[in-house]
């Protein structure tokens, strides 16, 4: 174990990877497939293992991998911090929105059968899983932004604010 930490522990661990050409090429190739796999897991949750939660994590993992290799900035060009935050809320609201919709349709909260007599369960599950996926992916990405973009010299500011 002690040997393995060598290249990583050096200063600025994540940054160092930018110079590893093999990793970069491999990562560039892998990322789209991971994203695709995430989508598969998302929508195949009805039939096989998986669902929104796992898909969201996978999706974020792809972004994280990309970020580790090419820098957080590059990821943030695609998904800015503000977008990631918005998507967290959107995911949760999508889920809760399904519930509110069924409730407004006169059935119980989250009673998918209110959506459609025949396919209500399918639609409902699809929608809420999408909500979970969006929320989880966005949250994980946001967490990564929070931790991955910090540097040892950016100590928390001491400033305090009144309102």
């Amino acid at each position: 174990m002690a040997d393995e930490r060598g290249p990583v522990v050096d200063d600025e661990p994540p940054m160092r990877m930018r110079e590893q050409i093999v990793l970069q090429v491999g990562g560039r190739l892998l990322t789209p497939f991971i994203l695709l796999f995430a989508l598969y897991v998302q929508f195949h949750g009805d039939f096989g293992p998986g669902g929104g939660f796992q898909a969201g994590v996978l999706f974020a993992a792809a972004l994280v991998l990309f970020g580790l290799l090419f820098g957080v900035d590059r990821v943030q060009q695609v998904i800015p911090v503000s977008v990631s935050e918005v998507m967290i809320a959107v995911g949760v609201l999508l889920y809760a929105g399904v519930g509110v919709t069924t409730l407004l349709l006169g059935s119980a909260f989250l009673d998918y059968d209110a959506l459609s007599a025949e396919h209500g369960q399918h639609w409902g599950i699809l929608l809420v899983e999408a909500g979970v996926g969006i929320a989880v992916a966005a949250t994980m990405t946001r967490l990564y932004y929070a931790f991955g973009s910090l540097h040892p010299d950016s100590e928390p500011a001491a400033g305090e604010h009144g309102e």
Partner: peptide, 30 residues
């Protein structure tokens, strides 16, 4: 199997009690 609910809106109050703040929180965030 489904449980039929009466049509009066106040049957949903137990759910609303929690759902209201639960929905309002992401709205604030949004």
């Amino acid at each position: 199997q489904q449980v039929a609910l009466s049509t009066a809106f106040d049957v949903h109050f137990p759910a609303l009690e929690v759902v209201l703040p639960l929905v309002a929180a992401p709205l604030c965030f949004l």
